[in-house]
């Protein structure tokens, strides 16, 4: 059995410069990875016999607006046999104007990622390339905008159904 502190070294050794150590954190170790290698990393984390991160606890988006490279996807993994937790963070490059940020899907690694990724797409507009059914999950299909983004007002936008909403362009 690997010691909790060692397994990060092992992963970083295996992936070289593609994976960075993101600090020990209050609760668990953290790894940072480029979106291009996230699927490789996840496959390795799940299938390596000394790691066995077989349970994807959570997957979520974070919006760092107005910083550069504003979107981030965070994975929380758990190894049921070895009882380790691990956080994997993946900061996305800013898309060109009018485009949406992209990241490969990890549904091929853990099926549970399906709904988590749909939720992240619904709330942040992050597109998970290769996702089998990337549709809005909470909001209705015709809804415009991505409500969890920091530039989306909490009260929503003013329209016929929402007299208390903000005027478009009031938050930046």
């Amino acid at each position: 059995m690997v010691e909790a502190a060692d397994f990060c070294d092992q992963i970083i050794k295996h992936f070289g410069s593609r994976v960075h150590y993101g600090g020990a954190g209050i609760d668990m170790h953290c790894l940072k990875v480029n979106p291009d290698y996230v699927v490789d990393l996840c496959h390795y984390l799940k299938n390596d016999p000394t790691l066995k991160f077989n349970f994807l606890s959570d997957l979520c988006g974070v919006d760092h607006h107005p910083d550069n490279r504003r979107f981030e996807v965070v994975y929380h993994l758990y190894s049921i046999p070895l009882r380790y937790r691990l956080r994997v963070k993946c900061r996305l490059d800013d898309p060109q104007k009018g485009q949406q940020p992209h990241i490969p899907t990890v549904t091929g690694v853990w099926r549970t990622a399906n709904w988590h990724e749909r939720e992240t797409f619904d709330m942040y507009g992050i597109i998970f390339d290769g996702h089998p059914n990337l549709k809005r999950i909470y909001m209705w299909d015709e809804f415009e905008g991505y409500p969890m983004c920091k530039d989306f007002p909490t009260k929503g936008y003013n329209d016929a159904y929402n007299p208390y909403g903000e005027e478009p362009g009031s938050i930046n």
């Binding site: 954190g25 609760d27 606890s57 959570d58 965070v74 929380h76 758990y78 937790r85 956080r87």
Partner: peptide, 17 residues
Amino acid sequence: GEVYVPIEAPKGEIGFY
């Protein structure tokens, strides 16, 4: 800082990140 705390709720693992 950031923290993810899971506990055993009646329905399963509930976690706050």
